[in-house]
Design a protein around this nucleic acid. Structure first.
Length: 167
DNA sequence: CCCTGATTCGC
DNA sequence: GCGAATCAGG
């Protein structure tokens, strides 16, 4: 593989977006992370925006349990009062996506419980290591992935689906 | 050990 | 210019 203008451009883009050298190498294909790093240096764009700068942006605890607050019958004197409309299942305001989904920087993680129809559900990490989570970035309405992962997810498919039907 | 980027240096 | 090997760090 050689560094075509196209590949260099993609390299610059991904690098500026904060992807690691190995990630970029995998994305480009045909090169190692060393090659990527070497190229990055040769291009003189060593420093970059601190994308993964967020050390611990609050992964958000999976919320153990709403703690079913059973309405205990109240008692007044000898009288047992009927339970007052035990809130069946407090809808839980659940931070509306409009707020939570605002251009979440890469690396912002969320659990499966945080996924909404607007969050990217691209799996990240190793389930066996306890660092498994989902991308969580904003995804276009109706799509399961953010723009970045959608590209990864669908590119191969597009290639495969290349129409072969003549006319 | 896994990973990261930085540097070196033979090609 | 390229990138594997290596280094230094988390």
């Amino acid at each position: 593989m050689n560094w075509t203008d196209e590949r260099v451009e993609l390299l610059k883009k991904l690098w500026s977006e904060g992807l690691s050298a190995s990630q970029i190498a995998a994305e480009l294909g045909g090169v190692t992370r060393n090659a990527v790093i070497g190229k990055v240096h040769r291009l003189g764009l060593s420093g970059r925006a601190k994308a993964p700068a967020a050390p611990a942006p609050r992964p958000r605890k999976p919320r153990p349990a709403p703690a079913a607050q059973v309405a205990r019958p109240m008692v007044q004197g000898n009288t047992v009062l009927a339970p007052v409309m035990a809130p069946v299942a407090e809808p839980e305001p659940e931070v509306v996506p409009e707020v939570a989904a605002k251009v979440i920087p890469m690396g912002e993680r969320c659990t499966i419980l945080d996924l909404t129809e607007f969050t990217c559900r691209w799996p990240v990490g190793d389930p066996g290591k306890g660092d498994f989570h989902y991308c969580g970035s904003r995804s276009k309405t109706g799509l399961p992935y953010c723009a970045y992962h959608a590209r990864i997810a669908y590119q191969p498919v597009q290639d495969r689906n290349r129409r072969r039907v003549a006319r």
